[in-house]
Amino acid sequence: MALLNLHLKVWRQKNNEDEGRFVDYNIQDISTEMSILEMLDVLNEKLIKEGQEPVAFEHDCREGICGCCGIFINGRAHGPLKRITTCQLYMRHFKDGETIVLEPWRAKGFPVLKDLMVDRSAFDRIIAAGGFVAVNTGGAPDANAVPIPKHNLEKALDAAECIGCGACVAACKNASAMLFVSAKVSHLVRLPQGKPEREKRVFAMLNQMEKEGFGSCTNTEACSAECPKGISMDVIAQLRREYFRASVRQEKE
């Protein structure tokens, strides 16, 4: 275990109306065994004691599954490592004396609420538009009634691993939510249970995505590269196929 002295450049913004600015902080004796969020805890404790306002940042489970945390760290969504969330980034990956720049996710669809916190409720509205299988509780057939090939199941699960953190939108130069939308479309369409609504779903979710102000996909693949769950570009290709299929098949309502 070693101790680091660091220079932080943190985006501070009082609320959605405030313009925001970077504020510099120096912080000493940070253990390499800390997570970056624990480093921020230490900074906040120090700020509170000095009578200054602590840095607001989103976090909850701190084990990489809830999808709350998300900071743009030194120019990368969730920091310099691949396939982890912000809370899983440990300080041993930084050097003594290094400057760490912390910015909130940037996208029109994710307005900044305060400091490093953004509003990702657009994702909820996209799911509400069609990211489900329309079954009511009760009356479901036996779980083994419809066999599902293991291969399909595994692929569906690969897509279903999305934690909705928004790193895909943050990393995308177009602020496109395509990976998020595609992951859900892909998860459901690969299962027999999701097939009856496949045409309706793809249109509904894409429409909502556009309404929320997200950009469109230009295949830079940054989303997939920064996705903490490693969701593949395959899902976007699958969404495209679903879209074409639905365009041809869907009857006018």
């Binding site: 743009f72 120019g75 720049v101 910015e103 940054a222 590269a225």
Partner: peptide, 20 residues
């Protein structure tokens, strides 16, 4: 439209790490 969708750009952006 995509530029507008992004809004504010990052102060530091190491896009070369994730895309060509």
């Amino acid at each position: 439209t995509n530029r507008n969708a992004k809004g504010i750009h990052y102060f530091v952006n190491r896009a070369s790490e994730n895309s060509t």
